[in-house]
Design a protein around this nucleic acid. Structure first.
Lengths: 397, 397
DNA sequence: CACAATAATTACACAGTGTAAATATCATGG
DNA sequence: CCATGATATTTACACTGTGTAATTATTGTG
């Protein structure tokens, strides 16, 4: 009489169990059983299997009540994964384990106008250094993930207009068989913030995660859907003001032309790279002049306007915002609400829309990509890509 | 060595087989086997089961080649389903079978400003008449579907601002156990046009289906996802012109204020209800004056602008448009492209975005809802809601 | 009317998981 | 220190769903 209705392949079951562990950061069996909707019997079988493959560990830790479980199940620290992040000003490589530890990081400056060939060269160099590091230690990477701003499985990227087929071919070649997932930065960010056990998150339930940085991008976090199926919402090039400011995309009046990091850093008079590297309240601490504050509020208003338009298209009842707006004083953020009030159907109403802010985690790259790599490893059940006996043709479903 | 990788419950397998039949309108076994990714052996078992329950029929029809299949499998004509459609000017009830035949229709005028209590009264009356009809014939409805403009599982409806919980409670009560699915009209429309075997459809693959009527709504048709998970895109209340025309929603400059049926019928000088009831090319035939044509082109431009914004948010490579724009002369429709060119990232490019038009199927209500009811019946495997032995709690996954 | 070609059915094996019985572990109290 | 109660963990067995392969059916052709 379990709560499930669809049988699962072994791979799926392993994936469900491992994903539960990734989210919780470690749990006792009864909890895993509930989370994965399996009986203790099945948990027992699966864990035995996973322990044998050194994917999980059971550390002796008796629960503090009579008859309680005796061992805490955690993801193994012996599986190496790699996260690669192309943020707008640098390319970072990292190696870590499933438990969230990062053992190796290398970061190289990368221009926001990076050409594909330059990227390939840069990537090749970093990879070589990394391979040296792993080689020396006899480590083999089980899963890698690369996050790119604007990436989508469709061939359209507003930020890097590269040939995705060529990109995938290049990566497949240089990575020599290491499984690689490519994803949109905003998905990796959202997943990391929402599901990594190390971070606090302001809300639960489906919502829009919005990141305002070089671009303006969001993703609808659907709590019941797998992260790798999330589809990004590229808000930056919504035209919110006909014949408005010129945008780098060639159009006029795009949201990005008003609210990107570049646009606001110009207003503040501080280098882009400086703004996000500061902590929460940084802008408040700056004690900006009144006209600067007013300008920023105008930009936040426009952000709200565009956000409202996006929410009209695809309604959700809460939004989490990360990026420079999160660094603004609470009072100033209200300008977003005013913008929302002009576009969101029915006007802004705090009973119908909950807005939260989280500090941007800049400087932690490639933490999000690393998390995403762990997620992908776990989603595959910790099995090689084609290890499933019945799976021959069917990756396309 | 099949192409599948996930085991299925009996319910799922039945659903897959039945859905294949619904889409094809009838097929020989080898085709079903390929479509459902099952062996002939499994098809045999499933069909035997379904035939026993009178959900499918096998009519003797030898394929015209040696050793070919001998019977054509079709959905049974003995399963009664009901489709209920609330278009903006009427409420229509229909009863039909899985093969697409419609046996009963009743239509009642309904104001676009219909209040919830009025709806309940109207619905009650129509239902009573329908129940009389079914009662007289000893027919019992296996699945009903109701399509409402603007409906979403969230509690926000731009068109009818009703209490959805109350609506569901009301419907559950009056329908006395008949399973009911509620969906957004645009989903039912899209599904009907795309998948019903009776209609031709201009494209294949993922795309945006856009309907421009009283409102402006779309849905991303994801060919690999189940229809009932499609999420509607309510385009109508995107603010495309700050401080523009007043919209009925209270905001200014919404797309709907420019491109809804109401807005354009005012330009043409013909009652709303007349416009869509005409066939393709109707507007061309009208021989409108030059300034009217110009105005309409302006509206199409704005539609393109809003559409471009939506596509920036969620890129797809083709769009199918239904509604009054489909009735416009081909040359005039190009105004949409001009609008797209100003908002769609990278400008409009026919290699990257394919635009198609299909005639709006007004006057066929509740055909789309009826199709959706058939879809829901089939998706449930033709089983009672809770018949699955292992399924007790788990409808929420 | 036998044959070739494919369709349709059926016996059997195997994967995955639940049930329930058997066994293990721990805190507590004598 | 040991029996006890409480819960955890493992294991034997049964059941579902499906593929494989052998068997039987159907049909056009020569």
């Amino acid at each position: 009489m379990s709560g499930r209705f669809a049988p699962r392949s072994r791979r799926e079951t392993r994936a469900v169990v491992l994903e539960s562990l990734l989210r919780s950061g470690g749990a006792f069996r009864p909890l895993i059983a509930r989370d994965a909707q399996l009986t203790e019997a099945s948990i027992s079988r699966i864990l035995t299997e996973l322990r044998g493959e050194d994917i999980i560990e059971e550390i002796r830790r008796p629960a503090p009540y009579v008859g309680g479980p005796t061992a805490l199940v955690t993801l193994s620290k012996n599986i190496a994964i790699a996260g690669i992040e192309l943020s707008n000003d640098r390319l970072s490589f990292g190696i870590g384990d499933l438990a969230g530890t990062i053992d190796y990081v290398e970061r190289m400056p990368a221009s926001p106008q990076l050409k594909q060939s330059e990227f390939e060269r840069l990537f090749g160099n970093c990879l070589a250094t990394m391979t040296q590091w792993t080689g020396k230690r006899g480590i083999s990477i089980r899963q890698a993930a690369l996050s790119i701003p604007g990436y989508s499985s469709a061939n359209t990227n507003p930020i890097f207009t590269w040939d995705m087929k060529r990109l995938r071919a290049f990566l497949a070649e240089v990575l020599e068989g290491v499984p690689l997932s490519i994803t949109n930065s905003v998905i990796a960010q959202a997943a990391f913030h929402r599901y990594s056990s190390t971070a606090a998150y302001p809300i639960e339930g489906d919502h829009l995660f919005l990141f305002v940085g070089h671009g303006v991008a969001g993703v609808v976090v659907n709590e019941t859907a797998p992260i790798d199926t999330f589809s990004p919402f590229e808000l930056g090039h919504m035209v919110i003001e006909r014949n408005g400011h010129a945008c780098r995309c060639g159009h006029k009046g795009c949201l990005e032309a008003y609210t990107s990091l570049k646009a606001v850093s110009k207003i503040i008079g501080i280098a882009e790279s400086e703004v996000l590297h500061q902590g929460d309240g940084f802008i408040e601490a700056l004690d900006l002049g009144d006209d600067i504050r007013t300008s920023l509020r105008e930009r936040l208003f426009l952000l709200g306007l565009g956000l409202g338009n996006a929410l009209n298209l695809h309604p959700v009842s809460s939004v989490v915002i990360s990026g420079w707006p999160s660094l603004m004083p609470v009072g100033d953020r209200d300008a977003i609400l005013e913008g929302l009030d002009e576009s969101l159907l029915g006007g802004f109403d705090q009973d119908r829309l909950k807005l939260s802010f989280i500090a941007p985690s800049i400087g932690n790259d490639p933490q999000a990509a690393l998390y995403y790599a762990a997620y992908c490893f776990v989603r595959g059940g910790g099995l090689e890509a084609k290890a499933e006996p019945q799976a021959a043709l069917g990756e396309n479903a």
